[in-house]
Amino acid sequence: MSMLDGNALAGDLREVFAADVTTALYTCGGCGHADVIATLHLWGPAPGQVARCPHCTDVVLRLVQTPDRLILDLRGTVRLEIPRAG
């Protein structure tokens, strides 16, 4: 296990979303802390990644890759605010 941060999710999330979600603002479902996805603490490596709130350590986002699927669990974030491309 090694710890990275939400910056490292950029590629996987860009396979799903049209925008760069690492610059999106999340609000943690556990403690209400809000910051950009890039600042989450990320435990991995792929294929199973868990991103935790740096403030309360609750799981904010989970990303699992299988050979033919990508499973994104966003139960830990109550809100995602995504900048629109200028």
Binding site: N7, A10, G11, R14, D20, T22, T23, V36, A38
Partner: peptide
């Protein structure tokens, strides 16, 4: 290779 990615750092 996949990229470039990451818009924050």
């Amino acid at each position: 290779l996949r990229g470039p990615v990451g818009g924050w750092f």
